[in-house]
Design a protein around this nucleic acid. Structure first.
Lengths: 172, 172
DNA sequence: TCAAACTTTCAATAATAATTGAAAGAAATA
DNA sequence: TATTTCTTTCAATTATTATTGAAAGTTTGA
């Protein structure tokens, strides 16, 4: 297989993976394109290579910068902006984890906290209320676990990640 | 807050969380409804409570059964089917992990394996090819890590999950 | 076999999300 | 200030995905 074909396949595969995880296909593809490009790319480069519009590139590149996994690069003497992706994939994973925790885990934990204070009422039996409270408590406990697992991974440096965690995961 | 309101908030929150993770809002809501229902529900119960059509309920309940997190319950002497969700949230997480690994991780690993065999060609310099190969290798290494982490969690029983893993995650 | 009670399917429709492209904005230069 | 070059915005459009509902299918029992 040749380089260009390999790059296309990666961009396509990354896009598919992205959409399974709630990231728009195009955003994942822009990210993939920047990952496989040794040099930073301009808006026009991205437009050309993915055949998408200027506005679309702008929107998605900005979103990727919000996630912290793409950087703007300014070249001296050049007016236009260039973009490059964080290539350290462990750091990419960490940044994504951090961002998703903030965006998704925190809101659901807030909701769980609120609804765990359900009071007995005339329209429901104490048994029903207790069953509900128990279920919510178990979801909360799981969310807490996920939250601290995420914290640890985020704080962990790559060395820890590779040595301690890998050892734990493959104890054989 | 009263039970009914709490249940609605949970169903709404779970739906929102689902759509962030690539699960359709309605599917997550059906799951949430079954989680907060002490008894198994019939298709009509779900239709009424979520105000969705029969076909929609059927589709989503079937998908949830494919994920292994909802079961069909047959009552003696009753013609219609009732559905109930797996309430052990650790088991739910495990089943989802297992299924997502199969559906998403495996395909991307296959693609990575294919494209890592990129050959030198006249249209690209050896440096470009090497940079690409290196990037893909690091993604592969990360995918392998994710894969074995998932395996371990899937094989682990709840006790391990709570004791070993929690200790690791909160070493303080 | 027929009718009743339910489930499943799927083409049509509706709802949602992504994309475009042209216009407005901003920054740099002369 | 006017011009050039690039970025950003956003209403309109297009594409995608979810939903409906009626018809077809299935199962059970008389």
């Amino acid at each position: 297989m040749q380089l260009d074909e390999a790059k296309s396949k990666f961009i396509e595969g990354w896009g598919t993976l992205g959409s399974a995880w709630g990231v728009s296909r195009t955003m994942a593809q822009v990210h993939a394109l920047l990952l496989v490009s040794p040099n930073a790319l301009s808006t026009e480069d991205i437009m050309d290579q993915l055949q998408i519009s200027r506005g679309n590139v702008n929107m998605n590149v900005r979103a990727l910068m919000d996630w912290g996994i793409v950087r703007k690069e300014l070249r001296p003497g050049e007016r236009r902006e260039f973009f490059s992706a964080e290539k350290d994939i462990h750091r990419v994973a960490t940044l994504i984890l951090q961002e998703r925790r903030k965006r998704e885990l925190e809101p659901i934990m807030r909701v769980l906290g609120e609804i765990s204070q359900v009071e007995p009422s005339p329209t429901s039996t104490p048994e029903e209320t207790e069953a509900f409270t128990k279920m919510i408590a178990s979801v909360q406990s799981f969310a807490n676990f996920a939250n601290s697992a995420a914290s640890t991974l985020i704080k962990a440096d790559e060395n820890w990640f590779l040595s301690t965690f890998m050892k734990l995961m493959r104890p054989s």
